[in-house]
Simulated assay, not measured.
Amino acid sequence: MSATLDRISRVRISSVTLPLATPISDAKVLTGRQKPMTEVAMLFAEITTENGLEGVGFGYSKRAGGPGQFAHAREIAPVLLGEDPSDIAKIWDKLVWAGASVGRSGLSVQAIAAFDVALWDLKAKRAGLPLAKLLGAHRDSVRCYNTSGGFLHAPIEEVVERAAESVERGIGGIKIKVGHPSHEVDLARVTAVREKIGDVPLMVDANQQWDRAAARRMCRALEPLDLVWIEEPLDAYDFEGHAQLSAAFDTPIATGEMLASAGEHAELIRARGADIVQPDAPRVGGITQFLKVMALADHAHLGLAPHFAMEVHIHLAAAYPREPWVEHFEWLDPLFDEHLEISGGRMHLSGRPGLGVTISEQARAWTVAHDEVRI
């Protein structure tokens, strides 16, 4: 009897443009490096097997790159046909080599991520298990914090109000953006939120906009506010600078969301550039690569707080040995028929198999391009 019991017979990819209700600004906008964000480009992959099983996965891009991800995914999608969907690591290697001339990080692996997530979703569905349980969960819920209410385009009164609302809804922590041209404005905003929410966990995110001197000054000024972490105080690739801050201050340093491969995370961890690593599965090439980052982070005794995409990251965070955090954004809610339960400061796994989500009709309506290959 053959060990291969099923094969991939059909692959559909879709580019979906998700509009945001309000243009979003962080420190990168205030420094003139980026424009306000008005939409998120989603890349969906739907993989079907000869036995009729289906897996759904997705990746995304903000501000730019969505059409490029879709184009690359369309070129390499035929590589999946005829493969055993359980051989996920083998398939990942085939996909990355199919596009190796454009590299093994960044956009090329982000296009692979949608396929990879769909394969893990399919594998867990075949087993009749939530993905976290297939991976081996350490917990059925994960601490969660909200970011979407703390952007710099919002006046502090709104940020404070939304922080309080999030806590009342059962969210366990609040993160707000910093990196304003005025350090005094940053400190006033963080202090106002701290005074409003009391001892609720509070994080800040500078989105890479400080230089080393400014970061040292701000880390020192923020120490009395008892923050869970200070995120991306420096350029994402300044591993040495992040390591210096981690060694100099009591407040943990968090970074990693902008790194675009497992290899880049390995360098960050080797440099001791973070107390808390923040990998993003769609950005590093999917769940297969994220699991490599998780293993390295655990071996280095680091905290874990995956970036964005909570629909995927709830499962991965639940499988991390050390108590992690997961980031709450409601932005992707319209794309799925199901939504995650939040209470008691935690995001809860559902009993649904796989990722536990299905693509909504609204997402179908927002589709701007699609393609399909089949045997």
Results as ranks from 00 to 15, higher is better:
M1I: 08
L5Y: 08
I8D: 02
R10M: 04
L20M: 06
P23R: 04
P23Y: 03
I24M: 15
A27K: 13
K28L: 14
L30I: 09
G32W: 01
M37G: 11
T38A: 13
T38I: 11
E39P: 00
F44I: 03
I47F: 12
I47T: 05
I47C: 05
N51E: 13
G55A: 12
V56W: 01
G57D: 06
F58A: 10
F58S: 12
G59P: 05
Y60R: 01
K62G: 00
Q69Y: 12
I76Y: 05
I76R: 11
P78N: 04
D84Y: 06
D84Q: 05
A89R: 14
I91M: 13
A100C: 08
S101G: 00
V102W: 13
S105L: 01
V109A: 09
A111N: 02
I112S: 00
A114P: 07
A114T: 05
A118Y: 04
K123N: 02
A124N: 06
R126T: 13
A127V: 03
A132F: 05
G136P: 11
R139Q: 04
V142W: 07
N146R: 10
S148F: 12
G150I: 01
L152F: 06
E157H: 09
E157C: 02
E161T: 13
V167H: 05
R169W: 00
G172P: 13
G173T: 07
G179M: 10
H180K: 10
P181F: 10
V185L: 05
V185Y: 06
A188D: 07
R189W: 08
R189Q: 05
T191H: 13
K196N: 06
G198F: 05
G198N: 07
V204T: 13
D205Y: 15
D205P: 14
N207H: 12
N207Y: 09
Q209F: 00
R212S: 12
C219L: 06
A221I: 08
L222M: 10
L225M: 15
L227W: 08
L227M: 12
V228K: 14
W229Y: 14
W229I: 10
I230P: 09
P233D: 12
P233Y: 08
Y237K: 14
D238E: 07
F239T: 06
S246N: 03
A247G: 01
A254W: 10
M258N: 15
M258K: 09
S261D: 10
S261F: 04
A266R: 15
L268W: 03
I269A: 04
G273M: 11
A274S: 07
R283V: 09
I287N: 04
V293K: 05
A295T: 15
H299V: 12
H301E: 11
L302K: 14
H307D: 08
V312M: 13
V312S: 03
P321G: 02
F329N: 01
P334G: 04
P334C: 06
G344T: 07
M347W: 14
H348N: 09
L349D: 00
L349C: 00
V357I: 13
I359R: 15
I359C: 01
W366K: 03
T367W: 03
H370A: 11
I375K: 02
